[in-house]
């Protein structure tokens, strides 16, 4: 299977004052298209940093990040923004919905950057909300929805522009067990039925069970995966 994501010899350093802190050390990772990958590891292991690099939110200090055949580490800020809008859907731990907008207006946000007509945008939004089972809540503001519902709105927002890659940072970290399972089942369904490649950072081994592959990071490096785990 062709790799959708290739991370090659990636180093990421941050500066704390005058001191450089290396978060990722010469990291290599390949994720084939259509996989549901759980990135696990202790706090400070570099999971979110790796996720940010793959999602085009940050750039490596060294090395290459190739997604869908494109060297995204070479793109400018503006090019990366456009690339993200076309290819990546993001799901955050705290949903990060716009509090003043209704569920459907939140879902419509990525489509505002496309050339779709108002009618087409509405149709896409309706389809995405139906997929996450929130058609009847489309007019509600985030504070009128439960945590699980808010996260499902965030997932609808992530998929509405039909990206190939879904990047999820602790998507169940703020949810109760029942809501978490609903969200994880939804991500699994999107992976299995819609063919989305899902990369999810999680601390929760139960959440990781929904993934088809689990990648462990520790101190900025990959921990060897057991043979035959990757799907």
């Amino acid at each position: 299977m062709d790799a959708l994501v290739s991370v090659k010899k990636v180093v990421k350093r941050y500066w704390r004052g005058k001191q450089a802190v290396e978060v990722l050390h010469n990291l290599d990772l390949e994720i084939p298209a259509g996989q549901f990958v759980a990135l696990m590891g202790p706090s400070g292991s570099g999971k979110t940093t790796l996720l940010n690099l793959i999602g085009g939110l940050d750039k490596p200090t060294q090395g290459e990040v190739i997604v869908g055949g494109e060297r995204i580490d070479r793109l400018s800020g503006g090019q990366l923004a456009k690339w993200r809008s076309r290819h990546v859907g993001f799901v955050f731990q705290f949903y990060n919905l716009m509090p003043t907008l209704s569920a459907e207006a939140n879902v419509e946000l990525p489509l505002l950057l496309t050339k779709l007509s108002g009618k087409q945008r509405k149709a896409n939004v309706a389809a995405a909300l139906e997929l996450v089972g929130l058609t009847d809540r489309r007019k509600h503001k985030p504070n009128e929805l439960s945590g699980g519902q808010q996260q499902r709105v965030a997932i609808a927002r992530a998929i509405v522009a039909d990206p190939t890659l879904l990047v999820c940072d602790e998507p169940t970290g703020d949810l109760d067990r029942e809501s978490a399972e609903e969200v994880l089942s939804l991500l699994q369904m999107l992976n299995r039925e819609q063919g989305k490649t899902v990369i999810m950072v999680t601390h929760d081994p139960k959440a990781a069970e929904f993934a088809s592959r689990i990648v462990h990071l520790d101190k900025g490096a990959l921990v060897a995966e057991p043979a035959g785990v990757a799907a």
């Binding site: 999602g55 939110l57 800020g77 503006g78 923004a81 456009k82 993200r84 809008s85 076309r86 993001f90 955050f92 990060n96 716009m98 509090p99 946000l109 990525p110 950057l113 927002r157």
Partner: peptide
């Protein structure tokens, strides 16, 4: 700030 960061994440450019 978090909301603006989310807009950027979704693909809004700096100029946008």
């Amino acid at each position: 700030i978090p909301e603006l960061a989310v807009l950027k994440t979704l693909g809004f450019t700096d100029g946008g």
